[in-house]
Design a protein around this nucleic acid. Sequence first.
DNA 1: ATCCATGCTTGACGAACTTGACCGAACGAT
DNA 2: ATCGTTCGGTCAAGTTCGTCAAGCATGGAT
Lengths: 145, 145
Amino acid sequence: MLDELDRTIIEILIDDARISLKELSQKVGLSSPSVSERLRRLEEKKVIRSFTVDIDPVALGYSLTAIVRVRPLPGMLHIVERLIKETPEITECDKVTGDDCFIGKLQFRTMEQLDTILDRLAEKAETNTSIVKSSPVKRRLPPLS
Amino acid sequence: MLDELDRTIIEILIDDARISLKELSQKVGLSSPSVSERLRRLEEKKVIRSFTVDIDPVALGYSLTAIVRVRPLPGMLHIVERLIKETPEITECDKVTGDDCFIGKLQFRTMEQLDTILDRLAEKAETNTSIVKSSPVKRRLPPLS
DNA sequence: ATCCATGCTTGACGAACTTGACCGAACGAT
DNA sequence: ATCGTTCGGTCAAGTTCGTCAAGCATGGAT
């Protein structure tokens, strides 16, 4: 589905999505219209979901992160799911197998803010919260091969 | 620290990091050298960590995701941390407070592959694995304000 | 009141992007 | 085997874009 050139292009773009077509094409050894066309196809095939920017939450004042496991009380599943979606400080959340129904990541500024958010959840779910102390593995891609 | 214009710029870039300076400057109502300078400063201040590309793991063949909680056996903490870092299928991992020491996300292609990876961990840690069924909240930023 | 720093605009020039015409390799059908 | 089609590539043009230098307005400090 992806050839070696596509993978090289992607690896370069992960590092710098605003690189010029010209420079990118020189790095991969193709002409710029070719690379442009490959990019178009990669977007079309949804291999590239989007070009985006990685913002440091700390720079926005969110200096703390927690991981919250959420187990809705009986009958509360959909209400809890909506509440999670409507809590903007929850910056990602997965629905998973096992005792915990949801596992989410929460960005916050103060312990008081964390407390407020968890209190709102606690009316409808059992929660289990772990504060993030460090991130040994920063977001990365699995092997492209 | 960030004014309204910076936030607008960031919001636009989150959607499309490859937008031209010209178009971006029209959207925010400034000239392009001004926007260029603001971008430079946002990068300098590390508010913008990087311009990057969002790749669909499914397009790379990783159709399954799990969240793994890891509790190293006594004395194994550093070995386990190294093992996690050296497992490329673990695409992010945080060190947290609480009983679990690490919580990581794992991308994989087949259950067999998951089994192999967990077996390697099991020699040095207790693990607890949840398969991701869906993602009610896709990665997003907390409020910029 | 003046000076300076900051952040903006403008205009010009060089650089990069897009488009269309063309080429060649791979491959299926006749 | 050959023809025709498709796919992915190059090249060259016209157009658009980014960067740089110069200059102007605002606002705070002396």
